[in-house]
Write a protein that binds this DNA or RNA. Sequence first.
DNA 1: TAAAAGTTTAACTGTTTGGTTAATCTAAAA
DNA 2: TTTTAGATTAACCAAACAGTTAAACTTTTA
Lengths: 205, 205
Amino acid sequence: MEKDISTEQRIIDAARKVFIQKGMSGARMQDIADEAGINKALLHYYFRSKDKLFQIIFREAAEKLLVTVKDITGNETPLDEKITALCNRYMDVLSENPYLPLFVLHEIHQDPGRIINFFKGKNMVPQLQKFFLQIQDAVDNKQIKPISPPQLVINIISLCVFPFAASPLMQTLFDLDTWQFNLFIEERKKKLPEFILAALKPEKK
Amino acid sequence: MEKDISTEQRIIDAARKVFIQKGMSGARMQDIADEAGINKALLHYYFRSKDKLFQIIFREAAEKLLVTVKDITGNETPLDEKITALCNRYMDVLSENPYLPLFVLHEIHQDPGRIINFFKGKNMVPQLQKFFLQIQDAVDNKQIKPISPPQLVINIISLCVFPFAASPLMQTLFDLDTWQFNLFIEERKKKLPEFILAALKPEKK
DNA sequence: TAAAAGTTTAACTGTTTGGTTAATCTAAAA
DNA sequence: TTTTAGATTAACCAAACAGTTAAACTTTTA
């Protein structure tokens, strides 16, 4: 009794595409059915409701965005290496999923309850606390300039994520086609860690 | 024959609130009517369609976000002062309109045509080019470390805007109430310019 | 092969939604 | 006061929408 995974997967793929492009409220079940090349009733056969289907896509997206951060900040490397690794890995993830940040941020804004629910059992918070401590240690030992750990974390995330969230605006404002935008991102991957580390470099005595 | 501006304004205020909270596709004309305390037909009496009403709100929001940047980058102050002024003014605007960035970015993503249309006649691009030249001059004169002007501009905007776009996520992740979030922003206003200027400080010979 | 179980579809349903209409209300103009 | 023009509303409409149903089709099983 082999389950036909193909249809289910086609639906997931179609739903991901449509939801991430149009958001929960802008997406139509018919759009998803068309994209998957199936009858609309099949959506309800496999995933009972629009909301159930949406939750699967949202969780998958949130997972992809947040777990990467958790993984890298969690291990035991020195702070400067960790910052470099975080920028590199994170921007790679975002390059392959450029529309994820705006989608996730918009849907969290619509219903913050989603993300609260998501965090339960993911132990993001303790992992983050450890990273905060590592930053505070570096400040106390004068390895970096004084900075509040949450501010630094937000600085790093901002610099990585924002260009993707703002990509349609950027492409218009700077008059870039997709190819040029990718060049911009590639240059950014190289230069961002040193920008951040330069900002943190302590004064020489 | 005095025109009753009050109803029209009440509709605009209600529309702004609802559209910015729920987005174009999530907003309901009935919600806006309820928020304004009037009959739904009045919306169509004053502003023919949902789309017309939305465009007014969207343009107003885009104006508020973009013109501030244009004004500050446009004048003739030195680069370091300009960066400081940009952070300060921009974060003030955002503090008073914290949900504008996510709204505008989401709606541009839905329909990039909107922003292309918006730019016409606003001469954002030439103003931006002048700012790029100023940055390039500072690089050439070794006043700041080498950096591509668009990268620097995106760095500044990212660091200012992202915390607001991500505020519901931040508040959950860092477990902040509104008051604590505001404290975070106030601290950020003080420290952000020096963070950026430190990153740009050239090596001493 | 027969029947049972799982998959897929066309057609349908009830509700929500943007938008319209015709009637009523209000206030200024004559 | 009567008329007239704009402001406001309740009731309505057609299209869009998420979700259902019953029948047909396909595959597995006995």
